[in-house]
Amino acid sequence: MIVADRKSLDEIQEMIKDYKKILLVGCKGCVTVCNVGGMKEVQVLSSILKIARKKEGRELQVEERTIERQCDFEYVEQLRADCDRFDAILSMACGVGPQFLAEAFPSQKIYPALDTKFFGGAVQHGIWEERCAGCGTCVIHFYDSLCPIARCAKSLQHGPCGGSANGKCEISEDVDCIWDIIVRKKMEQERLEDLRTYRAFKDWRSARDGGPRKSIREELVQ
């Protein structure tokens, strides 16, 4: 899933400081699952914003909606009837949401309430970790389903760098060196030889480096 964190209150307040009436829109997709943009978080942020505005001696009206997904125009369309009643719309979806909203309602001012972080999963309740960088050409079958593209700070494909120490990456003691894990797993499975295989240069054009991407599945296109 896409994992996001909520922006700081200061940042959100700054974005909406000129508005008196906003629509706060949650999303029932990934951001509900990662406890940051579902109906509960919408209610919580709504309340926080109102309290913060009250502290300034001004009033803020917030209406709360949570739609199925902000990354589908059909769901976004459900907001059309109401959207003109507001000075601005604050989206609690991943980065896709505000953009779909902006495309659907070009005259409306749309703001993101979340920082979209990565593709990952919950390793325990409240802790999410990155697992995929969306590079467009999956190589994890070479590495026992451990992705050095997403999980190595340098996206190295041929083993650890000199910054690997005691299983940790030099960037932080909290970050595991994925290469340490890959090598150990290969050793356990007695397949260390696999790593002698030279890998061709990765074609980064399928990743972000190739510019904005698009996926067209002809058979589905009507």
Partner: peptide, 11 residues
């Protein structure tokens, strides 16, 4: 006790 109750009470 939902965090929402605390916020709404303050509100």
């Amino acid at each position: 006790v939902d965090i929402l109750y605390l916020l709404r009470a303050i509100e």
